[in-house]
Computed example of a mutant assay.
Amino acid sequence: MSYILIVEDEEDIARLVARTLEKNGHKTRIAPTLAKAQELIEQETPELVVLDLMLPDGDGLELCKYIRFKEQTEIPVMILTAKGEEIDRILGFEMGADDYIVKPFSPKELALRVKAILKRVKQIEPPSSAINIGPLNIDPNSMKVKVEGKDVRLTRTEFNLLLTLIKARGKVLTREILLEKVWGYTFEGYARTVDTHVRRLRKKLGPCAEMIETVWGIGYRFKD
């Protein structure tokens, strides 16, 4: 049974999300504020945080930042908010969110996307050898990445995206294929999610950014 923390100040929405997730076998707790969410995370690490952005004591992105920079945690974050502009989505992904759903939402879609996130978090792959491509070094077992000997901290989604591109080295992967392989779903209209994550990944890879090529109108390819 997975423990999911719901950070939402609107009681009706929080209860709907909780009921939806509990029907699918998850344990939930609700935090109506950022302060309460941090308190609960310190008490018990959740396997997923469902996060609203507009909270009484601040912007939900602050909690996203807190989670991402908290030592030794790789908690996936799903943003669930009424803020649906493209710039809001980009900011959410820039702060390390793994997924983004706009209110009003479909409980069925929410359940499916939570399932997809938890599946890829729990997915255990057999041990793999370290990957060395020029100044880029990747250890698939420890999820550690180095560029020119310096550690690069990636979210789990960014790491899976990088590994997926490398495994298909030289081949073009469409946005739809990447959504299926990395995110575990192919909902219409979410191809921009891939673009945002690729942009963020390139920024973190610095001098190795050009290894990920854009194939205009199709998708992306890791240089062969």
Rank of each mutant, 00 (worst) to 15 (best):
L5T: 13
V7T: 06
E8S: 02
D9W: 12
I13K: 02
A14N: 13
R15G: 05
L16D: 01
A18C: 13
L21Q: 12
N24G: 12
T28K: 06
P32L: 02
L34G: 13
Q38A: 05
Q43E: 15
Q43R: 10
E44P: 03
L48H: 12
D52L: 10
D52F: 11
M54P: 04
L55H: 01
P56G: 09
G58Y: 11
D59V: 10
G60E: 03
R68F: 09
F69Y: 14
F69W: 13
F69I: 09
K70T: 14
Q72M: 07
E74G: 07
P76Y: 04
I79T: 04
I79E: 05
A82I: 05
K83F: 09
G84Q: 04
G84R: 04
R89W: 14
G96K: 08
G96F: 11
D99G: 08
I101S: 03
F105G: 01
F105P: 02
S106T: 00
P107C: 05
E109Q: 09
L110T: 13
A111T: 03
R113P: 11
R113Q: 10
V114R: 06
K115L: 06
A116F: 00
I117T: 07
K119M: 11
K119D: 13
K122R: 15
Q123P: 00
P126C: 08
P126T: 12
S128D: 11
S128H: 08
A130I: 15
I131H: 04
N132T: 15
P140M: 11
V145Y: 03
K146P: 02
G149V: 11
D151A: 10
V152Y: 07
V152N: 08
T155H: 01
R156E: 13
R156S: 12
T157L: 14
E158S: 06
N160E: 03
A168W: 15
R169P: 01
V172E: 14
L173V: 04
L178K: 01
L178I: 01
L179H: 07
V182A: 07
Y185F: 13
T186K: 03
E188W: 14
G189Q: 00
Y190I: 04
V194H: 00
V194E: 01
V198S: 05
R200G: 05
K204F: 05
L205F: 02
G206F: 09
A209Q: 07
E210I: 08
E213T: 11
W216E: 12
W216M: 07
G217R: 09
G219W: 08
Y220H: 11
R221C: 07
R221N: 05
K223P: 02
K223A: 09
